[in-house]
Design a protein around this nucleic acid. Structure first.
Length: 286
DNA sequence: TTTCAGGTGGTGC
DNA sequence: GCACCACCTGAA
């Protein structure tokens, strides 16, 4: 069984799993349990607090894939100290959300997950994805009294009619899931293609799918293809740009500011600021 | 019971 | 090329 050590200096499970980039992790007491590809992984804190163990508890996953998923090859010490020197907001955001990792998730899963995410909120997105996995994903087994399912394969989903995509809380997005799956299957599209593309080409390529606009394409690029220059502009990013950085409230100004101001480690900067903003300025928390 | 959150696609100018 | 609105549903 694969097992990976994650140093507490550069990894924090809450800041990593609860910042909106992934939908298949949850807390179980002191542990975090999630599904990666065809495996269930449990993350627990070491007794001395110096780090965490990520251990495959069901299914199989290579150590190489586990390392890649947690972005182990990236030097977070350098990235965070560089960003911290940039300005006081990044400093505050990193003080708050240190240990946030940019996970390298599966492109197909990200494509469908972020189609579901449009005009939607996280609890509902999770509900839809869990229902989709339970209905059409492979049962990986039972761990600690709970059944876990893999994300469904394209082959499985390609055999379904549109009504079958009407999973819990998904609403009108069922049509977009269906059309995307149909296109992928009918045209035998290779989802690895964006890996060879520059960010802007990849974004354009991803937008060929119904339900994928600019924002969703950037999310898929960032979380599914590890394009660390991607910059999803959602309501929270708009809010942080206008309130923290004094950017004018229009789409061109947002884009221009991000491209010129966040030059190095853009995706990492975006994610820590987004997490900071969500945690501090959310209406439900006041 | 009503209001709110939340991107994309389509329409109309 | 821009502004507007419909789309849906759980949570508050």
């Amino acid at each position: 069984m694969s097992k990976l050590w994650l140093n507490a200096a550069t990894f924090h499970p809450v800041h990593t799993f609860e910042n909106g980039q992934c939908f298949r992790w949850h807390r179980e007491g002191d542990a975090f349990i999630g599904v990666i590809d065809e495996a269930v992984v449990c993350v627990t804190r070491a007794e001395d607090g110096s780090g965490y163990w990520a251990e495959v508890v069901l299914g199989s996953l290579t150590e190489m894939r586990l390392k890649a998923y947690f972005d182990e090859a990236t030097d977070y010490g350098v990235i965070m100290s560089t960003l911290r020197e940039r300005d006081e907001w990044l400093q505050k955001a990193i003080d708050f959300g240190g240990g946030l990792r940019l996970l390298q998730q599966d492109p197909f899963e990200m494509l469908l997950s972020f189609i579901i995410s449009s005009n939607n909120n996280i609890p509902k997105i999770r509900m839809s994805i869990e229902d989709l996995c339970q209905k059409y994903g492979r049962l990986l087994g039972n761990y600690d009294g709970k059944d876990y399912y893999a994300f469904p394969t394209l082959e499985k989903l390609a055999n379904l009619d549109e009504e079958a995509f009407a999973v819990k809380a998904v609403g009108y997005r069922a049509k977009a899931l269906y059309r995307t799956v149909r296109k992928l299957s009918d045209e035998a599209i290779d989802l690895d293609m964006p890996m060879q593309m520059a960010l802007e080409d990849g974004v354009l390529w991803l937008r060929q799918f119904y339900g994928v606009g600019e924002k969703v394409a950037h999310c898929i690029s960032l979380f599914g293809y590890h394009q660390t220059d991607a910059y999803p502009i959602d309501t929270w990013v708009k809010q942080l740009l206008t309130t923290l950085y004094g950017v004018e409230a229009n789409a061109n100004a947002y884009k221009a500011f991000i491209e010129t101001y966040f030059v190095t480690y853009r995706g990492y900067a975006q994610q820590v600021l987004f997490y900071y903003m969500r945690s501090h300025y959310s209406k439900s928390k006041t």
